[in-house]
Design a protein around this nucleic acid. Sequence first.
DNA 1: CGCGAGACTCAGAAAATCTCAGTCTCGTTC
DNA 2: GAACGAGACTGAGATTTTCTGAGTCTCGCG
Lengths: 195, 195
Amino acid sequence: MTYRFPSLNGLKAFEAAARHLSFKAAAAELGVTAGAVSQQVKRLEMSLGISLFRRLPQGLLLTREGAAYLPDISRAFDVLTDATEAVAPALNGRKLSIGLDRLVVERLPKGWPRHSTELESYVRDTRITDEIELIWNNELDALLLARQTRHGSLSENAVCPNGNSEPIYFITRPGLAECRQSRAIIEALASESAE
Amino acid sequence: MTYRFPSLNGLKAFEAAARHLSFKAAAAELGVTAGAVSQQVKRLEMSLGISLFRRLPQGLLLTREGAAYLPDISRAFDVLTDATEAVAPALNGRKLSIGLDRLVVERLPKGWPRHSTELESYVRDTRITDEIELIWNNELDALLLARQTRHGSLSENAVCPNGNSEPIYFITRPGLAECRQSRAIIEALASESAE
DNA sequence: CGCGAGACTCAGAAAATCTCAGTCTCGTTC
DNA sequence: GAACGAGACTGAGATTTTCTGAGTCTCGCG
């Protein structure tokens, strides 16, 4: 099974331009300049060998082909966004699942992360474990370990809680390393006073 | 309406790799190196914040998320290919519609393009007209004109039939200018002996 | 006739992507 | 259990794609 379709960026430009019937508006939506959209659409038209828009002085008009193409492209985009949202909900406001090893649990304040209203809003649940596997499985978002571990290409972040020279290791998938949630947790850990 | 989805090239790599459960095979299918696929998938995983594959020594395995994601992505790709095929059938073996102006008709052999079995397989139909509009409408693929015309950014190709110093102009959409069909027609025109 | 809006074009800048060469990890073979 | 092969990974640099920015063009309007 091998698919034939044109440049996907071109489709994005086409879809937006067709919705707005304006390259300028489409450009604003996509966060690029109008020239970029114009070029993308032109390239798409060339690769398809048909024209999708009629350029009239009053503005754009879809050709018959363009009008026929648009709904299908929109539908495909819907499928993509829905699927993406389902499998990887936008990080906005999502809480992370954290695994803690036994040693770490002893070093954290009682009731962590519930002891802090701020932290609570970043952490969904915790469980006691040190299995790196669970991160690759997406069953956990991150692990807090008291000892260093082999972790392949996961992201590791050593944090020394306030007044303590023993670091705690924050392990997570690369994609989560830089998100607000991770930052907040690491920062909170750094300033936890040792028990 | 604004869509959220990750790099579309990354999705292409993911889809192929997931079907083959092999980056190497996916790379072969996509016509790139395995390293490129590996990088694309990794970037996709990072942008989603989840892992899609488990990398085992025996090969790849989809994670639960990867497995959930795949069918939707495939479906979206199906929609895209079908839509594209519907609106712009692959040029392979497609015949062009040509418009001829009156003067050109007089200068072509009787029964053109039927007089040549080769040409016949490139031209679907002809009609007498000189309206550039019809090309932008996709109602015609090309125009053969005896006189030069303003044609915006359409592709123009002047051909002098054998032993004739008056050129015939072959006008078409940019995307069709270089295809086999256009080339064949232009070449045939060049060697038509004048009436 | 001058103006404004929006699309277009072209060159160069910037970013994304690919290749290439080399590494690493396993599993297999002898 | 050492050598080997397969396939995935990595990083640097090359290549290709895409974007920007400035300037042009067309058209409608006052």
